[in-house]
Write a protein that binds this DNA or RNA. Structure first.
Length: 211
DNA sequence: GACCAGGTCCTTG
DNA sequence: CAAGGACATGGT
């Protein structure tokens, strides 16, 4: 029943908010969020931070710069994030899309969220999670990010749905406030890193964090 | 040395 | 449509 799922999701969000409070997460300008969203695919954030630093040192931490840069150079700078040839190609594709369609990242801010999302999803290498990360953290839109952690925590709590259905469930429960979206996803990731080992996650969040 | 990380795409059965 | 493999480096 989706009624019971909604109730559980409210509980999860309430407990996490009480436990982690106002954490700040994924700082940086829109360019950096977009680049980071590609680089963090299946990769620890520590390695992504290094790569972003490498790009910044060479003044390549923007889509306009990446659009004009040599792929070999980008590859060296993002190598520490793994899948570096693949990610370099994805960054170039994303940069080409943005520069050729909008002319600049700033020019995208006038676009409504659903059209922004549809455009991003057409890019090879930008799936739902990457697109929603960009919308939520890069453009402060109320588009909730569902990742493997969210799926796992929900699953632990008996909420078994596909990712797009989970997205709808969370968005129906959350207030229409981009900061609430940003915080909620950050809470989920922080919780999961702390409590959900890969093999065993049999202690439910509702038990771990009970007041 | 084995195993996994804030995914996505492509190929198979 | 579910499942499995490829992509690759760095940390435990």
């Amino acid at each position: 029943m989706s009624g019971s799922s909604s109730f559980k999701i409210r509980e999860i969000l309430r407990i996490l908010a009480g436990h982690y409070g106002n954490i700040s997460w994924w700082p940086g300008d829109t360019d950096e969020v977009m680049i980071g969203a590609i680089l963090t695919q299946q990769t620890r954030w520590e390695n992504v931070r290094k790569a972003l630093g490498n790009l910044r040192d060479r003044n390549l931490c923007s889509l306009s710069a990446i659009h004009g840069a040599d792929s070999g150079e980008i590859g060296e700078l993002v190598r520490c994030t793994g899948f570096y040839r693949l990610k370099t190609h994805r960054l170039k594709t994303l940069a080409a899309y943005v520069m050729e369609t909008y002319g600049s990242v700033d020019a995208m801010t006038g676009e409504p969220s659903d059209r922004l999302r549809a455009g991003l999803l057409k890019i090879k290498g930008v799936g739902a999670e990457t697109a929603d990360s960009i919308l939520c953290y890069g453009f402060s839109r109320t588009s909730f990010v569902i990742d493997a952690y969210t799926e796992k925590i929900c699953s632990c709590c008996g909420i078994l749905h596909r990712r797009d259905q989970l997205k709808t469930l969370f968005e129906d429960v959350l207030p229409q406030d981009p900061d609430a979206y940003k915080r909620a996803h950050a809470h989920i990731v922080e919780y999961a890193k702390e409590y959900c080992g890969k093999k065993r996650c049999n202690e439910c969040i509702l038990e771990n964090l009970k007041e």
